[in-house]
Structures are given as C-alpha cells and as structure tokens.
Design a protein around this nucleic acid. Structure first.
Lengths: 186, 186
DNA sequence: GCGGTATGTGTGCAGCGTTAACATCACCAT
DNA sequence: ATGGTGATGTTAACGCTGCACACATACCGC
C-alpha cells in the first residue's frame, strides 16, 4: 500500500516533514482538523508512524506551538533591532500582524488545552518569546512593570479580539491602520 | 438500568439539567473533559438523550457559551448601574474578575472551535454582552471609538494573559490589586 | 379515552488516539 | 564483509467518542 513503488521504507526526516505538513493543515483547517491519521496520510506514512517522533497528539501540538513561539520571537527581535527609535509601537503592530497572519498557529500557542504548567518546554519557549518584548518596554523596573504589562495586555487583547472577529471592521476601513491607531492611543 | 427504581421515564426539564451539570463539569474538568456520555450519566439519563435537546456536542457548547455571555452581561450592567461615577475602572475590574472566577467558561466563550461566523445566536449573545461596555465607554462616537477599543483590548488581554498564567504574580502580590493598577494606568 | 408528538432508551457504526507485535533498515563492532 | 542491535516504519487491534437509527414511553389536545 505504498504511495510509490520504490518508496524507501524509512522516510529520512519524518519528524520535520510531519511538523511542516502539520503547520499547513493547521493553518488551513484549524486545530480540530489536524488528525494524526490525516497528517500521516499527507506525509505518505502509516497512521502509527508519528508515534515514533511524538509521544501523543498533544506532544505534537506542543512542538508546533514551540516553533510558533520561536518564529514569533524571531520577528520581534528583528523589529526591535531595526526600529530602535519607535520600538514599542513597531513591536506592537508586529505582534498583532503576526497573530492575524498565522491565526491558527497563534491560537494554538495560547490554547488552554496545552497546559503550560505541565509542559516546561512550552513554558520556556513562551517566556523566551516575550523576553525581548519585556526588555524593550522596560518591564523589569519596579514601577515600569505596570505600564509594560498594560501595553502587553492591550496588544495581546487586540490580537485576540481581532482573531475572534469581535472587533467589527467598518466599511472602507483598513485593519492595519486601525491597529496602528489603537496601539498609538496610549 | 435506571438509577432509581421508580425514576420517571421523562426527566421533566432535561435541557436545563444538562446545562447546569455541564457548567459544573466544565469548570471542574475543562472543555475537553466534557463528554456527552459522562454528562448524560451525571444527569442520570441515557447517552443519546441529550440529542433531543442539542443537535450536537458543539451546539451544547454553544448554549453554554451563550449563558456565559448572559451572565457576563448581567454582571456588567449591574456594575454599570451601581458605579455611575467610576464606571470604566469598575467594569474593567469586573471583566477580569469574571474571567478568573469562571475560567473555563470564559475560555469557552472565546474558544476558536465555536466559530461565531457560523453561529448567529452566539454572535448575538456576544454582541449584546459588550453592548453595555461599549455604551458606557462611549465607543459609538467617531473619535471615542479608538479609545474605547483600546480600553477593551487592554482589559480583555489582561484577562486572557492571566488565565494563561502568562503574567507572573510575584511573591506576596495580590492579583486583584495588580489588576486594578494595570487598569488604572491609562 | 385516544391518537399524535415530544422525549428518553438501546443498539450500532465509523472515526479517533493509542498501543503492541512485527518488519525493515542503518550503523557499528568485530 | 558480517552479523547483531537499535531506530524507524507497518499492521492490526483496542477502547472510546460523537452520532444516527429504530423502538419505547409518557404527556396533551381532541
């Protein structure tokens, strides 16, 4: 039942292939549509093969979320480096744009079913991702912390509400412009 | 196989009983732990009985989310009525406290698997819940809208980040006080 | 009373995540 | 070279889930 007559018995780099295919399916179908059997079929491998690389479906989702945080982190550092003057606003906008462009991945990163208390790897990836943010915003100082948390909350809430379609975009209104305006309003 | 020898064949008000039991299970076990069979057993009814009142598991979850929005709405209106002076801050704090007290219900209300685009009832319940908020904050005015959205985003983001355990509470720090401080920092 | 309809029961199906036993291959010490 | 060993993939099966169908029961308008 092999896909190709002379397909090799071993895939070569299955773990990576699974993650990549999973990212595609995730963005297309959402987390609920990402089944292990479909995923295995998409990569051309038997239904149980993924278990050699991931303990469970939850572990696979965790790995996806971790790469999500890494990509997010990379984007943030990049923006922090190139916009040293208006870093705060630029990072805020990048934050929201990332969420909108990678909707289902972003949702997965903050999915309640990936309990971060029980998954140190995910917790660390998440913390690392926000490290840059915290540093730029000066959240380590005693009294700067409140403002930093407020800014973080505003940006994150904006991302979540937009993802949820909760903030109505009026006719002829540009989403990115609206985001910039809201972030700008301290 | 009846729970009690003279249990009536008809439950009386099963729909309501299901919703109430579901709310308890939801808050105890989270959305993933809410199975139709367990729920039916908890109410003392056969596994297929819930389908007379809910088309699917998703429909049940939707109904739960709707009642969640209604409770949320009630709390908001109550606070808006009793705190006519500092309405904004009071409502913000209530918003976050509601999320923390009804964690899993709040998560369900904004769960991506309940696609609001495809569920008009849920959409309406959500919109109605935020109506009060929008009114008090003056979000209908052209230029007040940005500030209103910013405030909403800040409060919502704060709730979500706290729920996710993403905002670290330092030793000897009171969560509610921190919330009040962050909300206060415009 | 009686028939129709709403409500609850019992059974079964397909699909899921997961596991265990087996097959195949790469690699490394001899 | 070769043979043993562990990593990787396959196959089959288990238990569970949401869900659908046919049947049983109880309420309600005539």
């Amino acid at each position: 039942m092999s896909t190709s007559p002379n397909a090799p018995y071993h895939h070569g780099n299955l773990r990576q292939a699974l993650l990549e295919a999973a990212l595609v399916i995730l963005e297309q179908q959402g987390e609920a549509g990402l089944g292990l059997r479909d995923l295995a079929r998409a990569v051309g491998v038997s239904p149980a093969a993924p278990y050699r690389h991931f303990d469970s479906r939850a572990a696979l989702l965790e790995a996806l979320a971790v790469t999500g945080f890494q990509r997010f982190s990379a984007r943030m550092e990049e923006v922090a480096a190139t916009h040293s003057d208006d870093a705060m606003a630029a990072m805020g906008k990048t934050y929201v744009v990332f969420a909108l462009q990678n909707a289902n991945l972003f949702r997965l990163m903050f999915s309640p079913q990936l309990k971060k208390e029980a998954r140190p790897g995910l917790r660390m990836a998440a913390d690392a991702a926000f490290e840059t943010l915290r540093h730029v915003v000066g959240g380590d100082v005693r009294e700067g912390r409140i403002k930093a948390l407020a800014a973080w909350a505003k940006v994150h809430g904006l991302a979540v509400l937009l993802l949820d379609g909760q903030i109505a975009i009026r006719a002829g209104e540009d989403t990115e412009a609206l985001v910039a305006e809201i972030i700008g309003s301290l």
